[in-house]
């Protein structure tokens, strides 16, 4: 059974206007998405800015009010606050935030920041609590002298590791990582990502890894979902997504990964332009009349794509033939 199952999740924000400030329209930030996260895996959620990735992540930790749909954890729908409280849900599901500075209270010392979930969920004695905080700092590679300092005294990478330590503190089963490294430079990104992988190996944590950086996602995730305008356009394993993309949006995202091979520059540019031309010419084929993605259709046990059934199978056939030739 999956660790957590998201079923037809919708988060719509109301738009108010007019003299009476009535609800006149809605922004469908997340518009009916379903996927499941297995225990111990890293699930990637990818998409452009404003595609609803973060809203999905916040719904999973219970920070966002869900319009409809359900998120099942241990057979309970945790979109209801009462269920979250009864299960002590946030002890098992924690979050790592994108902006490491604003996610740490600037007026609290590191000890109090990391101990906050411990104080609420596990009532340890003072010594045990301090010992646990010191162990957590050790696990994320910070010295004990960080204990009584304030967040602004640390570098971005160190702060993000403090955020990781806080998320790991209660030994959760799932951590929602909302673009955890997008604000860091490349060397520090690798450092933080390796820490996250190390912690996953040691504690058997699952991640819901939200990112727009496909390189990072390839490094981290076994299963990936591509999100576009509040809907999922493609779900698959790492191999499905990177080597056999079917939806034009996935192809565009992949084409946007920068290539550093100078000798191949012209070829790479040509392939990018080809993808873009297909997108411009055949947009109507890939999206419905409202410009939204179609419902998902399975083309293999692991791989689903949001296209009309006939087109999906046709594209999958072409992909198989292309691979056979190559």
């Amino acid at each position: 059974m999956s660790l957590i199952t998201i079923q037809n999740l919708k988060v719509h924000y109301p738009i108010r206007s007019g003299f009476w400030n009535r609800v006149t329209d809605e922004v469908p930030a997340v518009d009916g998405i379903s996927f499941a996260i297995e225990a111990g895996e890293t699930y990637g959620l990818v998409g452009e800015s404003g595609s609803g990735k973060t809203t999905t992540g916040k719904s999973v930790v219970g920070l966002e009010k869900v319009t409809s749909g359900s998120i099942l954890y241990q057979g309970q729908d945790i979109t209801q606050k009462a269920n979250r409280r009864r299960l002590n849900y946030n002890r098992d599901v924690q979050m790592i935030f994108q902006d490491s500075l604003s996610s740490l209270n600037p007026r609290k010392r590191i000890e109090d920041i990391i101990a906050e979930p411990l104080r609420n969920f596990e009532h340890l004695s003072k010594e045990d609590e301090k010992l646990r905080v010191l162990q957590l700092l050790d696990i994320v590679g910070l010295d004990a002298d960080a204990l009584y300092k304030y967040p602004h005294q640390f570098s971005g990478g160190q702060r993000q590791r403090i955020g990781v330590a806080r998320a790991v503190a209660t030994n959760p089963k799932l951590i929602v990582a909302d673009e955890p490294v997008s604000a860091l430079d490349l060397s520090v990104q690798a450092q933080v990502l390796n820490f996250m992988k190390k912690i996953q190996r040691e504690f058997g944590i699952s991640y819901l890894f939200i990112s727009h950086d496909l390189g990072v996602v390839r490094h981290m995730c076994q299963n990936i979902a591509i999100m576009n305008r509040g809907r999922l356009v493609e779900i698959g394993t790492r191999d499905d997504i990177y080597n056999h993309p079917l939806h034009i949006y996935t192809k565009r995202l992949l084409a946007a990964i920068p290539e550093t091979n100078v000798a191949q520059r012209a070829a790479h540019r040509a392939s990018r332009l080809a993808v873009e031309r297909i997108y411009q010419e055949q947009r109507a084929k890939y999206y419905d009349d409202d410009g939204k993605a179609y419902p998902l259709v399975a083309v293999s046990p692991t791989h689903s794509v949001a296209l009309p059934a006939a087109l999906a199978h046709q594209l999958a056939q072409e992909e198989v033939q292309r691979e056979a030739q190559a």
Binding site: G62, S103, N120
Partner: peptide, 8 residues
């Protein structure tokens, strides 16, 4: 938000 997810 972090405090909320920490159960405060």
């Amino acid at each position: 938000a972090a405090s909320k997810t920490s159960g405060t």
